[in-house]
Each structure stands twice: as C-alpha cells, then as structure tokens.
Amino acid sequence: MDLLTFFMLAVPLVLFAAVVILHPSPVYSAMSLVVVMSFLALYFFFLDAHMLGWFQIIVYAGSIMVLFLFVIMLLNLQNDPQEHQQPSLRTASRIGGAVLIAELVFLFSRSSSSEKAAAELPEGFGTVVALSEKLFTDFLIPFEITSILLLIAAVGAVVLAKR
C-alpha cells in the first residue's frame, strides 16, 4: 500500500471514527461506524487480505451493524442527553486518552526505527484457499471452539430476548 492510498483511507477512517463517538444521534454513530467498517474492508483489500475484506463487509457492516441499528430503532433512542455526566470522570478520561495515544504513537514510532522490510508474500496470500487451508489444519480446534461459542451465543441471545 503506497502512502497516498494509506492517507486516502486513514483520514476518512479517523474522521468517521470520531463521528461515531461524537455525534449525539445513535443512528448517525452507527452509520458512521458502518462507513468505518467499509473503509476498513477496503484497507484490508490493500493489505492483501481479500477474504477478510469481504468478511468485514458481510459480518461487520452487513450483520453486526444491522443488529445495532435494529436495536437502536427498536428502543427508538433519541439523542444522548449529556447533563448528568460526572465532570471529574470526563476530565480524567480525556487526560487518560491523551496519554494513551501519546504512549501508543511513541511506542510504534520507536519500534519503526528498527523496522525491517516487509516479508515476501507467499503465493495466494489472503485468498480463500490459503485462509481455509490454515483454518482447517493449524487452527481447526480454535475454529471448532468458535463455532460452539457462536452456538452458545445464539442460544443465549434467544433465551435472553424471550424472557
């Protein structure tokens, strides 16, 4: 991914991510998050993770976020009232966030000084075939466990919602 592409994707990502947490309306937040997800899918395409890119769209943008939107609309949520918020918590959170981002940026930029060149990509990197092969050999047990987790989550969600 060249620098131009990077910034073309990174800038909207950060902007829409900021909208997610700043917009008072939950629907706009959710829609911004959909946009973030879609841009991330694009980002994944450029990082040679084709399969993951599509999954990002289908799973995150297409399913999870629809679920969020569904709940928002079911509860008919209006704009977030801001009055009762503890001021000390807000201040502390802002300071904490600033420190965290400073630390992360410092950490990552420092690690870049000892950066090696990107490795050569093997044949079929990020394709369905390569991903599936790994998934059903090296990662078979985690895969099965994840499937059970999904089943449990489905049952749990039904039980909770039916109560």
Binding site: Q86, L89, A92, S93, G96, G97, V99, L100, E103, L104, F106, L107, R110
Partner: peptide
C-alpha cells in the same frame, strides 16, 4: 456501580503497563 469508572481503571492500568515498557 458506574461501568465507566471501572473502564477508567482499566485505562489507567493499561497506561501504567505501557508506560512501564516505554
């Protein structure tokens, strides 16, 4: 009982760990 206060504790912990490594 405020979840966000607990989350703030998380954040402080994460900051501390990161700070230690830095």
């Amino acid at each position: 009982g405020n979840v966000q206060n607990y989350a703030l504790s998380f954040l402080i912990g994460a900051m501390a760990i990161l700070g230690y490594y830095l």
